[in-house]
């Protein structure tokens, strides 16, 4: 007989696995570095967080360290994805030809002009 705690943990782990598999396939299917960054970072991080919470719910003695992993992933993974996107834009990787908006390019140009004047 499976108790309710195991069922909740299994639901969390299943959601996390679905997100991770979709993120990994989006990494191959999407056309651009920036689109791939969306799929890779957001949904893979969400999947890892959900799997850690599910494992902590199934085995309650692992819960503090699983929560430590969750907090650490939530702190560091957006930072690293931001650094990757900034590095990709500044090293001159072009946007996909179907992209509709680019707010960072004009802002960067305006900032450089202001820095050159002062």
């Amino acid at each position: 007989m499976i108790d309710i705690q195991t069922i909740i943990g299994m639901v969390f782990i299943s959601i996390g696995l679905l997100f991770q598999l979709l993120g990994a396939f989006g990494l191959v299917r999407l056309p651009d570095v920036y689109n791939r960054l969306q799929a890779a970072t957001k949904s893979i991080t969400m999947g890892a967080i959900s799997i850690a919470i599910g494992v902590g719910v199934i085995d309650l003695s692992l819960l503090p360290k699983a929560l430590l992993v969750v907090i650490f992933l939530m702190l560091t993974n957006p930072l690293s994805s931001h650094a990757i996107a900034r590095a990709a834009y500044n090293s001159g990787v072009p946007l996909w030809k179907g992209s509709v908006v680019d707010r960072y390019g004009p802002a960067l140009k305006k900032l450089q002009k202001r820095r050159g004047r002062s």
Partner: peptide, 26 residues
């Protein structure tokens, strides 16, 4: 095709390894 693609894939593999180690530990 470009090197940022490879870094995004490397970051993905690293996060997957973290999740896999949590599952193996349980």
């Amino acid at each position: 095709p470009t090197s940022p693609d490879r870094i995004v894939a490397l970051d993905t593999v690293n996060t997957l390894v973290v999740g896999m180690m949590i599952g193996l530990g349980a």
